[in-house]
């Protein structure tokens, strides 16, 4: 369920002044301004919120959080919307979600992120044969500097820091437990 109640509670004192929109470097690219998005959250309009791409454009620069005259944790609220969208597999967030999910999968397996592996996981998840070309130019530059290497997705290899499987499982367990609480 796309529950935004806890985010609404965080934003209860929002007075719709629009300082957030004024400070946002990505406001031009958003379909709803940040101020408008917060209004939708305050009115429980989940459909409008998750049809919008606005929260997906937040680049976590924390300018709105710094400047909000009510001192509201707006960047945090954006991330909480991303999390609801990720957990509910919201269509407009699928590309970003696949990217973040692949990143974390690589971290779960190895403890540290392996750039080439997580990008491969991301491409597999997106099933779009043209997507890798978006990254070809930067990828080639990094490879020519010997900064990334090709590696296929793999399981935990027992080398170095090992995997974080137990911690990841515990996190899910606690989250499920909290979801079931009234």
């Amino acid at each position: 369920m796309k529950d935004t109640g806890s985010i609404k509670a965080l934003l209860a004192t929002c007075m719709q002044c629009g300082t957030c929109t004024g400070t946002c470097p990505n406001a031009d690219a958003m379909d709803l301004t940040p101020r408008h998005l917060w209004r939708m959250v305050l009115m429980d309009r989940a459909d409008e919120i998750f049809e919008s791409q606005t929260f997906a454009y937040c680049s976590t620069c924390y300018f709105c959080t710094l400047k909000c005259p009510r001192g509201l944790p707006l960047t945090r609220a954006m991330s909480m919307l991303k999390e609801v969208a990720y957990k509910n597999d919201v269509k407009t967030f699928r590309k970003s979600g696949a990217f973040y999910g692949s990143f974390m999968e690589s971290v779960r397996r190895h403890g540290r992120v392996r750039e080439s592996e997580f990008m491969t996981l991301y491409f597999l998840e997106m099933k779009n044969p043209l997507l890798p070309f978006d990254f070809a130019s930067l990828g080639l530059k990094l490879m020519s500097k010997n900064k990334v290497s090709f590696s296929l997705p793999s399981g935990a290899d027992g080398r170095g820091q090992g995997n974080l499987d137990r911690i990841f499982k515990k996190v899910s367990e606690i989250e499920n437990r909290e979801e079931q609480m009234p």
């Binding site: 991330s79 999390e83 990217f99 973040y100 971290v107 403890g111 540290r112 974080l164």
Partner: peptide, 18 residues
């Protein structure tokens, strides 16, 4: 010793607790 990823900007959208 044995440090691991901090979660970068990818962990927060996946799981706040993580």
């Amino acid at each position: 010793e044995g440090w691991s990823c901090c979660g970068a900007t990818a962990a927060e959208p996946v799981s706040s607790l993580l």
